[in-house]
Amino acid sequence: MAQVPHDHHQRTLVAPAICAGVGVHSGRRVRLAVRPAASGTGIVFVRTDITDRDNRIPVTGDAVVEARLNTMIRNSSGVELSTIEHLMAALCALGVANAVIDVDGPELPILDGSALPFVQLLDRAGFRRQEAPVRYIEILEPVRVEEGDKSAVLLPCDRYEMRFEIDFPTAVIGRQVIDFSVDERTFRDEIMAARTFGFAHEVEALREAGLARGGSLENAVVIDGERILNPGGLRMEREFVRHKALDAIGDLYVLGAPLIGRYEGVKAGHAVNNKLVRALLARPQAWRETVRTPDYALAG
């Protein structure tokens, strides 16, 4: 496994990481290449299939424009890319601060519905330490958003922590809670392999809306009443809430840096997470950029 110990410097890749797969909503086959980039580049997606206008989409909180069932970004020329959250979660957890990602379609490949294939892809490419220190976004004051019975909050904390709670009226899921420190080891051991999930009765409606065209039992956990349709069942205990946490890590990394703070989500999805990102950006007194080391990194 091509891990590099975190020494609080920015990271990029040693070599390009390339894969191909199907977009879960578009059903289109796309090719993806994550390439090394210089310090200060951040995460930048490039739609290589678009050549008549600016096809670069730097990832920022302001770039997120759609958050119904996935996270979509758009640049000032109207070029869009969707379903970035699983790769963004992998980049965040593995400490990749700088990368240019070429993709030849409108949506990232869903692969197996988790971040595991992206982590494996990045591991094979290897990681390179850069001279610039890691920048963090430190939460100084609570920031909270609500949408019906869904909520998300960012709280001051001396490291990056996350608590997530879901509650579904089916015994297959029910109420599930996870509370953990967002670091590379925990992500690898407990989060990255958790797959996206959905309900069989929703699939037809999604497809009529032009979504989930590439969805299958190969890339999602599908629930029908009180049954899980996937032949292998679940990969782990509380896989559903673990995946929601995975999504949140990716959704928050659009801020361009990992957090020193605590995220708490209740039934939150991409829309609520993006609302939280925008609420944070609208309150500059509630956060600051810092290069100080989180407490768990000091202990390590």
Rank of each mutant, 00 (worst) to 15 (best):
D7R: 06
H8Q: 14
H9M: 09
H9A: 04
A17N: 10
I18M: 15
A20V: 01
V22T: 11
G23D: 03
S26C: 13
L32S: 00
A37M: 10
A37K: 08
A38R: 14
T41W: 03
T41S: 13
T41D: 10
G42D: 14
I43Y: 07
V44R: 11
V44I: 12
V46C: 15
R47L: 13
T48G: 15
T51K: 04
D52A: 04
D54N: 09
V59E: 03
D62K: 14
A63Q: 02
V65I: 02
R68A: 11
R68S: 08
N70H: 13
I73T: 04
N75W: 00
E80D: 14
L81W: 15
T83C: 07
E85A: 12
A89Q: 00
L91S: 04
A93R: 03
L94S: 13
A97I: 01
A97D: 13
N98E: 09
A99S: 14
V103P: 13
L111Q: 13
L111P: 00
G113T: 00
L116H: 12
D123N: 08
R124I: 02
A125G: 12
A132T: 02
V134Q: 08
I137M: 04
I139R: 02
I139T: 02
L140H: 11
P142L: 07
V153C: 04
L154M: 08
R159Y: 15
R163I: 03
F164C: 10
E165H: 10
I166H: 11
D167R: 11
D167P: 12
F168T: 08
A171E: 14
I173D: 13
I173A: 15
R175G: 07
V177I: 15
D179P: 10
T186A: 01
D189T: 06
E190W: 10
F199Q: 04
A200K: 15
E202I: 07
A209T: 01
G214V: 03
G215A: 12
G215S: 06
L217S: 13
E218S: 15
E218R: 13
A220T: 10
A220N: 05
V222T: 11
E226T: 09
I228V: 15
R235M: 03
A245R: 04
L246T: 00
G250H: 12
L259M: 03
R262A: 01
A268Y: 14
H270Y: 02
A271Y: 15
V272T: 15
K275P: 06
K275N: 08
L276E: 10
L276A: 10
L281A: 06
W287M: 10
E289Y: 12
T293F: 08
A297Q: 11
A297Y: 08
A299H: 08
G300Q: 06
